[in-house]
Computed example of a mutant assay.
Amino acid sequence: MTDFRPAYETLILRRERARLHVTLNRPEVKNALNPTLLGELREVIGLLRERSDIKAVVLRGAGGTFCAGADLRNMEKSFNDPPKPGEKDPIAASNREYGTFLEALGSLPQVVVAAVEGYAIAGGFGLVCVSDIAIVTEDCGFAMSETAIGIVPAQIAPFVAARIGVPQTRHLALTAARFKGAEAVRIGIGHHLVKDTAALDAKLEEVLKQIDRCAPLANALTKQVIMRVGTQPLPQVLDFAADCFAQARRGPEAAEGLRAFAEKRPPRWATE
Rank of each mutant, 00 (worst) to 15 (best):
D243R: 14
G86P: 00
L48A: 05
E103M: 13
N95V: 11
E146M: 15
V237R: 00
H171N: 06
V58K: 02
A148L: 14
S78H: 06
D71G: 03
L13P: 13
E16W: 09
T100Y: 08
K203H: 03
A184H: 09
G150L: 07
K195Q: 06
A248I: 15
D71W: 09
V128W: 01
E206D: 12
P252F: 09
E117S: 15
G118M: 02
R250M: 14
P109K: 02
I91G: 11
A68F: 03
G39S: 13
T65A: 01
T147G: 15
P167M: 03
P82D: 06
E43D: 13
T222G: 15
Y119T: 10
P167S: 13
L200D: 07
L47I: 14
A177Q: 14
N74V: 06
A7W: 01
K180E: 07
L48C: 11
E28P: 12
S107R: 04
V58Q: 03
C129L: 01
V111R: 15
T23M: 05
A255M: 12
L47T: 15
D139W: 00
L127G: 01
A246I: 08
K55E: 13
A220R: 03
A92L: 13
G251R: 05
H191C: 02
T271Y: 05
E43K: 14
T271C: 07
A270K: 06
A56C: 09
R186L: 09
P109G: 12
G165V: 04
P85R: 05
A177E: 14
V57M: 09
